[in-house]
Design a protein around this nucleic acid. Structure first.
Lengths: 161, 161
DNA sequence: AGCGAATTATTTGTCTATCTAAGCATCATG
DNA sequence: CATGATGCTTAGATAGACAAATAATTCGCT
């Protein structure tokens, strides 16, 4: 088996682990994976418009409407018309919603974070270089990928507004 | 922003690119992503039982029944009772099904393969080491990750049977 | 040999996610 | 102010997923 295959297999393991993690996380939070992702996006900065959420998740706005409906019903977010532009809706995380995200189980990501931080400097640097290299090889271009898998203290690289 | 965050962002880009690739692939093949994945699994060794497919995809058998129904309707696979164990069903890829997999569009993976192979030896080695490192940090353990994103010439690391 | 338990697949019913198309309100601009 | 663009929602459709129930078969044990 050549190196290309080996790298694909490792990649595949990463994808699979992440997917399973998503389900695990969602199950523990009593939400579906999609709902949890949406909630995370909102919680990241405290609020977001459906449009933002849709583009971050790569789905249509209609999907977000339904998703937000469910989150509102669970009182994890609220929905209000924006003052600045009354076509827009602000989806705002509630304390409960924030708590749900914060109390997400100590699974994959935290495991990853802990292990990553335990690495030697040079090793961290190498991994970053490699991951960025792979990401560059994979994505055609300009994909929005701010850290949804937030570690809790990242501020979104604010984009227009 | 610290290194952990940077690495998470890169990881996120990889995940996203791969997800989008899945959709792209499926659209081109006129199948949904799930259907395509199932077909790939069957095509990998020519046949598979619903049980195998379910565990490889991480979903229930009931889901596979419905998925295989659709693939059968499109004549991409056939279904017959196994001789060895008549509780089992063999899902076998048809020439059309195989062709569908083989003719999957020249998108992400091939882009990746080409670029990866163009790298210097030391760079390939570094990427592999990093990816495996990350995979190990992410997956709890023993996750089946044989190359579904097959490059066309990988034989499954045969497992019991 | 025969009975009960386990395994494999399917059916049925329900829920969620997702899309497209269409609609409504609002903003921006000529 | 009329027109078109933008942001969101609604409506209707399809797909994926699960749990529970069912059926067919095989296995384990006495």
């Amino acid at each position: 088996m050549d190196r290309t295959d080996i790298s694909l297999i490792a990649l595949r393991r990463i994808l699979r682990a992440t997917e399973l993690y998503g389900k695990e996380l969602a199950t523990a939070a009593k939400l579906t994976a999609a709902q949890f992702r949406a909630l995370q996006i909102v919680a990241e900065t405290g609020r977001a418009t459906p449009k933002d959420i849709a583009s971050r998740m790569g789905v249509s706005q209609a999907t977000i409407t339904a998703l937000v409906d469910k989150l509102v019903a669970r009182r994890l977010v609220t929905r209000e018309r924006s003052e600045r532009d009354r076509r827009q809706t602000n989806v705002t995380v509630t304390p409960e919603g924030q708590a749900t995200v914060d109390e997400a189980p100590d699974a994959l990501q935290q495991r990853y974070v802990r292990k990553f931080e335990a690495l030697e400097d040079w090793e961290q640097a190498q991994i970053i270089a490699s991951l960025e290299r792979v990401a560059a090889m994979l994505d055609a271009d300009a994909i929005d990928a701010s850290p949804v898998l937030t570690t809790g203290d990242i501020k979104s690289t604010d984009k227009r507004h």
